[in-house]
């Protein structure tokens, strides 16, 4: 990964790593939609495994992010931190909903939460982009990568 030209330290890995669990949660929303249309339990099974894999890997990446933050003082942006905190709490909750048996494991609560998670992920990325596009001048706009 590219180092920060100002400090020479590596950029925070957290946001890049979290694209994997994010992809799992987005895929879970898609399989939830297919289940809601088909009532074929295979799709619900996809969803709960995607949520589980996403949460386990996210747990590892949060630890990596914390090590880097506390050890190297490289924090991900405030938007990234808040966004993923909401995503992970909702997805943990969603995994319990998806562990119910039958239709109510997805409809309505599970599907609703999955869609909200996708919306929060999208908002996180968009807000990060907006902030980044304003970041260079002046430097005080930096919300991210404070050392």
């Amino acid at each position: 990964m590219q180092n920060d030209p100002a400090s020479g330290l590596p950029r925070p890995y957290f946001a890049s790593l979290m694209t994997f669990p994010a992809a799992c949660f987005i895929a879970a929303a898609m399989t939830d939609l297919i289940y809601a249309r088909s009532a074929n339990m295979t799709w619900e099974t996809f969803s709960i495994w995607l949520l589980t894999i996403g949460l386990i890997t996210a747990g590892v990446f949060v630890v990596i992010g914390l090590i880097q933050a506390l050890g190297q003082h490289r924090w991900p942006s405030l938007i990234t931190r808040i966004g993923y905190a909401i995503v992970l709490v909702l997805s943990l909750f969603n995994a319990f909903v998806h562990s119910r048996d039958g239709y109510t494991s997805v409809v309505p609560a599970g599907l609703t939460i999955s869609v909200v998670v996708v919306a929060v992920l999208a908002a996180t990325w968009v807000l990060n982009q907006v902030v980044r596009s304003h970041r260079s001048y002046p430097a005080s706009f930096h919300l991210s990568e404070r050392s």
Partner: peptide, 9 residues
């Protein structure tokens, strides 16, 4: 830690 949808659910 919940947001509104979490409380709803």
């Amino acid at each position: 830690a919940a947001s509104a949808p979490l409380a709803l659910a």
